[in-house]
Amino acid sequence: MEKAWHGLVGDSNPDNKLLSYTTQQDVVQQIKQGIPATFSLTIGASVIWLFFGILVGVIAAVTAGRLSDRAITILALVGISMPVFWLGIVTRYFLAEKNTWFPDGEYVGLTANPVQWAYHLILPWTVLAVLYIGFYGRVLRNNILDTINEDFVRTARAKGLSRREVLTKHVLRNSLIPVVTLFGLDFAGVLGGGAILTEKVFDLHGVGWYAADALDKFDLPPIMGVTLYGAGFIVLLSVLVDLFYAYLDPRIRPT
């Protein structure tokens, strides 16, 4: 590894730093600078997609087969099928440029101005979340419909619990377990710079934007750096998911 760095960065770089070919800037430093924007985008969007994904999934499952379920299924499919760059550009054009209801891209630091921070992020949050809402909603709907037929749900009803208690305590609790895995990996992916398109479309100078920029210029070191950084998050979140899994499902706890 050490040697590889040397080969790549050459003699002009006595500190063993990974430098960009085009700008000679320190890659690690640049990634660090992108972190606030990327984290803000990821955390905000994931809260939205998790909340609405679960909501949509529960509503669809509870009304399975009826109109609202069908409508949700169709909307989910539309959401999943819409490319982020297209949706991003369209929303930006109509909501931020044609009508100036929302700021036209760019990132404002949370500490600098919290209100502007959120205001600038609403569109990218929503656009990024749309894809996942549809996906999570569908996965959860199917999980719930599977769980509802489990014997222990019948037991819960036979105890005299209300429909709501049965749904929240027994059905939802069990059908959310697989969603945790999905969420962990998706969250890690976006946190690790995976929201390249969203960041690019909305001019958010985060890690993904940095990677996209480097790709444009065939600048290898930043791409390497971002890949390693992203891989780190995947590993970290995978471990967290496993730990959380054990918390949710006692059967896989070590005894």
Binding site: D151, T155, A158, H170, N174, D249, P250
Partner: peptide
Amino acid sequence: IGMIFQDPMTSLNPV
């Protein structure tokens, strides 16, 4: 009225 079911392996909530 209380009820018990056929399969005790699946009739209790595992979590």
